[in-house]
Simulated scan of single mutants.
Amino acid sequence: MEKLYGILSATSATLHGTLSARSVIGVEIYDGEYTVHSEAHEVQTLPTANKQLVKNIIVEKIPYFETSNLSDGITAYIGSEVEIYGE
């Protein structure tokens, strides 16, 4: 638990006080990937249990594309890149 005690004055813009914080000793820093690319048919587990993270983990979105088809419908492509010919 962090606590900050002191006086903050608008005229002097100075803060005086004491900051105390609980430190965690012996916690391993996570050194794995922080950006994960989602897979439509694959489970991914990041080994972060009982480790300290230094930034947010970003999970990229699963690719999703729609195109018209010969049956006057829409074909959806989920989880794969689609190359559109003629563009």
Rank of each mutant, 00 (worst) to 15 (best):
E42G: 01
H37K: 15
Y5P: 00
L46E: 04
E66A: 11
E87M: 07
E87W: 10
H41D: 15
T11R: 05
K55L: 00
L4M: 09
K61S: 12
G26W: 01
S12K: 14
A21R: 13
V36C: 05
L19A: 02
K55S: 06
I62K: 06
I7F: 02
N50A: 10
I74A: 03
F65S: 11
A49G: 01
I25S: 05
Y30L: 03
T48A: 08
S38D: 09
I58P: 00
E87Q: 10
Q44T: 14
I29Y: 05
T18D: 03
S12E: 12
A76V: 15
R22T: 10
E87N: 09
Q44R: 13
S23G: 08
Q44M: 08
A10P: 08
I25R: 09
E28K: 12
L15G: 01
S38C: 12
P47V: 03
V36W: 07
L46Y: 06
H37A: 12
K61V: 03
S80M: 13
S12N: 15
I57W: 04
T14A: 14
L4R: 08
S80L: 12
E87T: 13
S68E: 11
L15M: 12
S9N: 15
Y77R: 03
Y34T: 09
T45S: 04
E66C: 08
L53E: 04
A40M: 06
K55M: 04
N50T: 04
S71R: 12
A40W: 07
T35V: 15
L70V: 08
P63C: 09
Y77K: 01
E66Q: 14
